[in-house]
Every structure is written in C-alpha cells, then in structure tokens.
Amino acid sequence: MRWRTAVYFLVPAFLLYTLFVVYPLLSALADSFWRWEGTARGGFAGLANFTGLFTTFPLNHQLWPAFWHTVVFFIGTMVVQNTFGLLVAVVLTELRFGRRFFQTVYTLPYLVGGLVVGYLWSLLLSPSFGPVNAALRAVGLGSFAKPWLGDPSTALPVVILVNAWQYVGFPILLFGAALAGLPSEYAEASRVDGANAWQRFFRVTLPLLLPSIGVVSILTFIGCFNTFELVYSLEGAQGNQPTGPGGATDVLGLIFYRVAFQEGGADAIGQSSALAVLLFLFIFGIAVLANRIVRRREAELT
C-alpha cells in the first residue's frame, strides 16, 4: 500500500477523533489554568480555579458531600454487583437449561438507559400513587410505605438499589463467562481431596475469580463517578438546586453539570474546567492503578 493511500484511509477518523474528543479534553486542561470572564480569557490563574472549587460559595458546601455520596454510591453498587451478581452467576452455571433465558431477563434493565430507569422508578416509588407503596399496603406492610425518594435516610440507598437493579445483569454475564472459563481440574482435584461445596467455592473458585471481581469493580467505579442521568431523573433535578432531600443524592456528575451550565458564575469556564481536570485525574488515576493491581494478581494466579 502506498503512503498516499494509507493517509487517505486514516485521515477522516484521525481528524474527527482529534477534533471532538482529544482537543476538547486538552482544551479543558489548558482552560483550567486561566482566569475567565464569561467567554473572555483573562490572565494566567495558576491554581486559583482549583482552590476556588473548595473556597467559593456554594461549591465549598456541595463538593465534599457530593464526593462522599458518590463514594457511598460506588461502594453500595459494587457490593451488590460482587455478592448478589456473583451468587446468581454461580447458581446459573449449575443450571442444565434456561440459562440464556435468565441472562436475557436480568440484562434487559441494563439496556434501558439511566434516564428512563430513573423516571420509571420515580413513578413506581412515588409516595401516594406509586405501585411500590400500594403493593406494601396490599400485603399488610403499609407501615413500611414511605416517600422513598423524599426521605433523607432512604434516598441514597434507594438510588443505589435502582442503579444495582439496572446494572446487575452485566456482572452476572461477566462472572458467568469467567466461571465457564475456569479449568475444571481445580474443582475436581479439590473434590477428590475431600473438600465440600463451600470449601471448593471459597478456597478454589473465589480466588480464581478475583480478576473478574476486579474488572467488575473498576467498571462500576468509572460508571458511578460519571453517573448523571439516573439521579437527574430519579430525584427530578431542577436548575442549580442540590438534588434529593437536603441534597442527599447530590453526586459529582451533577455538580459538574451545574458548575458548567447552571450556576452561571462569570468564571464558570475556569471552575468547571478545574473540576473536570480533578475528576479526570481521580477517575483515570484510580482506574489505572486498580487495573495494574488486578493484572498483577492475575499474573500470580497463572
């Protein structure tokens, strides 16, 4: 192939990707170090935009709570994915038929998309007309009926459960594939050695699954720290108001959107760029680090 032909083949993808993916991210990095008045760039700001995130009102009151909500949101989702998801995957491998059917059913919510899932559950969980509370009353558990999304003590846990409901199909599929790929010799050998089912699972299967658990956790981490649609629709985000009762479900994705487009300060570009850079470093840094640990464990296993 001649050089010229190769260039023709490569240029369209290169240009489109560079212009709309790489350039904006680099540009955000550059913007974070400058002073901004609306869309006009002022002088070099050093780290002022970054420190401003933690000192200017109302961000200084919202950023850390949102960070911790996101951390709790991630840990909660991850725990459900790696316990319930794993349990279902293990049970499915023992099934002689119907596995595909269950996998399909469990994966359906995954396709629906965060916004639709959020709106759907906001209706289902509505205090007065929602089917969830109606069902509780119908079976005599009416005392448990409550405004799930409006009560500060249940709002975040409910958001976590809805998120887990949406995404649990993915770890079920992933663990299922990993379990199917495990060499059966290990299980057979431990069976011969007289290990019971529990010992076989916790001493043999689980350690072999650690890389998959790592992958699920990393992907959950990236997903959770980018969450935006689900909370937006579930809690009915409005303008620049904190979301959920008393801001109980404010997460970083929402804060980023508000800083960039809703709060409308003159220095929105500088501040939101600084926040973007911090989020990027945090998410990317942890994901890469965790990935390296998982790879090392994987290498030790094989």
Binding site: F20, V21, Y23, P24, L25, S27, A28, D31, I222, N226, F228, F256, A260, I269, S272, S273, A276, L279, F280, I283, F284, A287
Partner: peptide
C-alpha cells in the same frame, strides 16, 4: 478510557 463528557465546555 477517556471520559469525553468532561470536555463538554470546549465541545
């Protein structure tokens, strides 16, 4: 691995 949303303002 790039979270493209973070580039929304430049976009």
């Amino acid at each position: 691995m790039l979270p493209i949303r973070l580039g929304i303002l430049p976009i």
